[in-house]
Design a protein around this nucleic acid. Structure first.
Lengths: 213, 213
DNA sequence: TAGATTGTTAATCGATTAACAATC
DNA sequence: TAGATTGTTAATCGATTAACAATC
């Protein structure tokens, strides 16, 4: 018995499978074959079967996959059967947008605290949460279990803040600052780089994905 | 002479090169070798040279790369030497966050209009832009050149809206709704799926990236 | 000129697709 | 049982890394 690493390409596809299966579930679809799903998702049926078989055999020959079961299993793989306590650091527009995004709760992510350094924001309410002073962070983390910290502070502040959070025991960081965070490897970072996403769009629009040769 | 497709993997890395070179530029670093850059970025020097050579020889043997020149060239490849007119559809928290994100202007993306269907939001001001009624969209697009539409409306509304935008001539869509948009292939879509990003973080935290076998 | 580092070809590695036997 | 579709192996394709000649 040994451990097999799941490739990053597979992991990146899992949430999309989960989304499509959730949509099917809402439409009361009971079963689906890899071929049908592949047509909806515009991927190959082969890839779907390969991907799923990294985690075990969820289907049945001659039948396909039970939508509800597969959805639930992928949910478990993604850790969506767990509840996560989330704090948001940086109560600017983006931080507020995240705090107000109700849908996250449905997946088990609960915003427990919002922090900022601006006196204008400290003390204000965002969806039932009072914005706290960022200076209280260390103390807060001593008495509250926090699984994920969303970082929505300016670029220059992010690396130092992330290092502090790691020191104070945070294991998951959802980083929106346009910078890379170099942290001990027991800390997991997931980046959302909006500016880079926009640049990719710009690239595709400018039509330079074909180069004369 | 034929056209060579640039692989998606390469495109995805370009904005990150651009960011690192921008940081170096701010620190007044004049030149850098692929080896030095590879150590900062935690990729192989070989990959950097391969990636850049998709677009031409930007370096010089025995010297490396001139930071300012390379930064500028990658900017051009990404289409950042162009100005883009952007509209935002959906003036909720996320739409407002995008509208307030000043940094985009620095890269050439100018928010020219914000639209919503909510009477509470129509007429309010967001960074100098009056929120317009979404019903005015078609008319607006007849008289204004718009390169990119950012979609921050609920999931159910997004596909129909995107189809309309495509019909009305929009060629670039920055999609924040948690759904795929199937549009004619002359319309470019760049997705930002926050929920999927969070699920990936959840996956990594739950430690299922190793599977017993 | 000698040293450094690119640009580029060749080798390796990993991911995707195809094929088909197993089996429901 | 016959038909359908999975699970899984083998073949293909593409991306990454290594190596080194070219050259500044």
């Amino acid at each position: 018995m040994y451990k097999k690493e799941i490739s990053k390409a597979v992991i990146n596809r899992l949430p999309r499978y989960y989304r499509y299966l959730g949509d099917l579930l809402e439409k009361d679809v009971v079963r689906i074959s890899s071929k049908e799903l592949s047509e909806k998702m515009k991927v190959t049926a082969s890839q779907i079967r390969q991907d799923l078989n990294n985690f075990g055999g969820f289907g049945q020959q001659g039948y396909g996959y039970n939508v509800e079961y597969l959805h639930s299993e992928i949910g478990k793989i993604l850790g969506l059967d767990t509840k996560y306590n989330v704090i948001i650091i940086g109560a600017g527009n983006l931080g507020q947008a995240l705090a107000n995004y109700v849908d996250f709760e449905r997946r088990g992510f609960f915003v427990k605290g919002i922090f900022d350094i601006s006196p204008k924001l400290i003390g204000t309410q965002i969806r039932g949460n009072v914005v706290r002073n960022s200076e209280e962070l260390e103390e807060y983390l001593k008495t509250n279990k926090v699984d994920i910290a969303a970082i929505t502070v300016p670029k220059t502040k992010a690396p130092g803040l992330a290092a502090d959070l790691a020191k104070w025991g945070i294991k998951g960081i959802w980083n929106f600052a346009p910078t890379d965070l170099n942290l001990p490897k027991d800390v997991t970072v997931e980046n959302v780089h909006l500016a880079e996403s926009l640049m990719k769009l710009s690239y595709k629009l400018s039509g330079k994905d074909e180069v004369n040769i």
